[in-house]
Design a binder for these strands. Structure first.
Lengths: 239, 239
DNA sequence: CGTCTCATTGAAACTCCTCAAAGGGCGTGG
DNA sequence: CCACGCCCTTTGAGGAGTTTCAATGAGACG
């Protein structure tokens, strides 16, 4: 059930069989959410965290004029709101983008983890720090990359993250987003996303159509994005 | 010595006297860095984390063309690179902006903390999650706020954070940054920062001159920034 | 077959950037 | 003590990238 979560965790940490048992025991129940549902609202007191099993979700913040900024995308295996264990109330909303299957982890079990499982505590602490690293890379994109590079960088990021849980290969992956969703990730308008996608397509780098990213030229795409996967910490970390 | 660090920690958590002792015992040594020195480079293996005692520093990432994005500012009391305990190598650089006095915390002592002090472990885990919340608010600024609002928002953020450690009041605070530094925080050019500052000044909201932020109209400034301090978690969190 | 959402394109406007030059403040050295 | 140099700030003019507004096209679904 949480096999993708274990895959992404094992890519970065050595987890013993007993620890795997402890991880599995964190889950109290599973749920299904429909697409386009904001199931966590900023400011509400939370008592469990959510592992995404299947589907796509995002964290976002709105401005009063209705403009929205998505701050991170979540893919299967991600702990979408592990930070709510520390923060209790989130500063942002969390919404499903597609229908999603999730596993719930009560915060009491995470508290218990901090008493009984110092190593797993560090593993999950790392996981929230990885989210922060992704935020920083998005800050760089939003602040300094031009539109086409932003799109290219996001496609590279998702390729690397999805490949880790077996949902992408070098040629591409499924990505059930609209161009308006990409716009909200990248601080642009849907119209300009459309033009940027055309540019990337005409340069023979990547095609995004009917919910699929098809990568035609990996190294060219990475070069256009100035993509360095180091910020994703894809490899084993000693600890 | 680490009084500001204790102030900012106690603003959010209840810390016992014994825990305070444990926190003080984390520090192995103090150091002084000159201004404008990058003392942590992306990718280098780190063995201690840094509490900023005095001065101003920043985390930043560069693009190949020399463009720089600052991803967070650090003020006295902040753990500037607590996340290096989890990540081992950082995805970004850390640079002093002014001369800085720092305290070093060996990672072994943090590892020991995860065994002996579950509550303090959660307190410091929270601290890295707070950095992530700041990153998310910056993503919102970079992606969706216009230039003057970005400047206004940064000034509001720093007012709130500095007030927590006694370095700001409602009328303003010292901020020894150049307009070029602000530009690197806010994804703009120095020229446009200058024009945005003029706008804010002419609107009677805030003046930034000779390293000082003078707030003329707090509520007006917050309104221009659409500033809501919730993302800074300024109040006691139960745990 | 109609409706709805999403994608695409064009034209004009706007925000922000680039390039360039001048002004101000401060420390250093003559 | 003044002059110079250096860094930072300020301002102007023109240009680039992105947005806005508007309309059409394409695909999915009932």
């Amino acid at each position: 059930m949480i096999d993708k979560h274990l895959m992404r965790t094992r890519a970065r940490h050595t987890i013993t069989e007993e620890e795997e048992g402890s991880i599995r025991a964190l889950v109290s129940e599973t749920r299904q959410y429909e697409a386009r549902k904001t199931f966590i609202h900023a400011g509400e007191r939370l008592h469990h965290s959510t592992i995404l099993l299947d589907g796509l979700m995002c964290r976002y913040k709105d401005l009063r004029n209705g403009q929205r900024q998505i701050t991170e995308l979540h893919i299967p295996g991600d702990f979408a709101d592990l930070h709510s264990f520390s923060l209790k109330c989130l500063d942002h909303n969390i919404m499903t983008l597609t229908p999603c299957r999730v596993a719930l982890v009560p915060h009491e079990r995470l508290t218990a983890l901090t008493y009984d499982q110092p190593h797993l505590t560090r593993v999950y602490w790392f996981s929230t720090n990885l989210d922060a690293a992704i935020h920083r890379e998005w800050e760089l994109s939003l602040g300094r990359r031009d539109a086409a590079s932003r799109v290219a960088h996001l496609f590279c990021e998702l390729q690397a993250r999805l490949a880790l849980v077996g949902l992408a290969d070098e040629t591409g992956y499924q990505l059930k987003l609209t161009q308006a969703d990409l716009a909200e990730c990248l601080g642009l308008t849907p119209v300009h996303i459309n033009r940027s996608l055309r540019t990337l397509r005409e340069e023979g780098l990547v095609t995004f159509r009917s919910g699929k990213v098809e990568i035609h030229n990996t190294s060219g795409l990475q070069k256009a994005a100035e993509f360095d996967p180091a910020f994703l910490y894809l490899h084993e970390v000693e600890d």
